[in-house]
Design a protein around this nucleic acid. Sequence first.
DNA 1: AAATAACATCGCAATATTACGATATTAAAT
DNA 2: ATTTAATATCGTAATATTGCGATGTTATTT
Lengths: 109, 109
Amino acid sequence: MGITKKERFTEEQNRLSVLFKVLGHPARLAILGYIQQQNSCICTSLVDEIGLAQATISQHLKELKQAGLIRGTIEGKSVCYCIDEEVWVNAKDIINTFLNQTIQLNTCC
Amino acid sequence: MGITKKERFTEEQNRLSVLFKVLGHPARLAILGYIQQQNSCICTSLVDEIGLAQATISQHLKELKQAGLIRGTIEGKSVCYCIDEEVWVNAKDIINTFLNQTIQLNTCC
DNA sequence: AAATAACATCGCAATATTACGATATTAAAT
DNA sequence: ATTTAATATCGTAATATTGCGATGTTATTT
């Protein structure tokens, strides 16, 4: 039904999957990468840089914002986007914890 | 249009996003977690464990298989699933590289 | 005040995802 | 040979995602 049955899973699994999901689109990775590259905040040369329509970029920015990974500050006519360091560090931590869960080497296949 | 314009992005961004995407569902994280927990391979107590329909679990397993993260070996009536260590280590590496890209602290917001 | 620039939001079309019942398929058990 | 157990696959419904043109909205510029 296109809807995830969240109640079946742990809170950790849900949080982690939301994080992975928002990172699961190349445009959003490109946006994050571009914001990171710049020393200062980026408004929207993103549209030129990435080559999707302005409406589409805006939508991806919204999803990144909703996930808390970026923040937008209004600066006159334009908006200054930057990565929310605190949230990002926390996200990295959660992902790293997941990645570093030791894996028993399966010997059967 | 529901279709990702892959040609717009780098190969790295596309590979990474595919990885994140497959990890972006709690059921798949639960499946991976469960396979990891067990010392030996798991067939399908997954359906009991996770509480989704057998067809649904099978579908998620397929996606994990397509991403290369797990392998299934037929063992009589049942199938033995385990994590593909090589692919998994590589995936972790790719993700870690992404996570550890240094972030310039944005000073503007 | 009117024009413009930089977004955000709306509405829509195309496609993808999630979930599941029903129905294969395959191998072991009877 | 038939039954049963363990899956995989098919078909379908509900919903979500991706993308974009058109249209707001808001602040600067003229």
